[in-house]
Amino acid sequence: MSKQVKAIVIAGNGTNCEREVANACRLAGAEVADIVHVAELLAGRVRLDDYHFLNLAGGFLDGDDLGSAKAGANRLLHAPVKGSQEHLSDQLQRFVEDGKLVMGVCNGFQLMVKMGLLPALGGEHRKQSTTLTFNEGGRFEDRWAYLKVDPQSPCIFTKGLEGVYLPIRHGEGKFVADSAATLKALEDKHLTAVKYSDAAYQAPTMDYPLNPNGSQNAIAGICDESGRLFGLMPHPEAYVHRTHHPRWTREDDLPEEGMGLWLYQNAVRFVRENLL
């Protein structure tokens, strides 16, 4: 493999954010940021193995008709890749075992959770132990949220960050664990990388609208124990430039780069340092 950071964004069947995710990867320094329709993966023409950084973008896979990302997870698990004995999920498993990076945003996060890719406690990547369900308010919402970063989290993507301000745009973003034990394990291992917080990133909050969906422990995103698999409901790709900020016309000291870009820069740095 040449010395290029290669990111892939899977598209199709209802993904909506593939273009801006690819743009974020490029801005963060990835030399390759391909948008690949899932049909091309299933046709066997493109293989996950040729990339370092897999992005599962936001959207409404199959309309979220069976619950967010449920039908999408089912497809990835069961759709065969043409001309081979494997399913797409086998390629994905290999990708994870190879020490590569996966980030799921919004519907992509829902997909990872429902496939069992997250939190994958004990390294079990096929068992669902947490979920993202209907917002406490029962409605889809688009609003910006403050996220406090856990500095002790193994998460590759949030390394060195204290807080980020990003938009959420979802109807099913309420994080729920299947048991108190799971929740405790997530917290003890610092896998709950980002939490909804006050504007000063001081403390997680259960107060609406700062916590827009009523997530348990104000959890907005989690990683696995390796820190290389990460998913979150807010959209980092939607804040990569100053003009994405909802108050850019009034906050004069906003830097040119948006806070969401930091997550992608961390990913690209990791790939360069560890995978090339």
Binding site: D142, R143, R169
Partner: peptide, 23 residues
């Protein structure tokens, strides 16, 4: 009503439907 519509997907909305100090 405005909040129920995704007004930011595609990451191109520079002046959004809701603006100001409290968005």
């Amino acid at each position: 009503v405005v909040r129920r519509y995704d007004h930011e997907v595609q990451a191109g909305t520079v002046i959004k439907p809701l603006v100001g100090v409290a968005n």
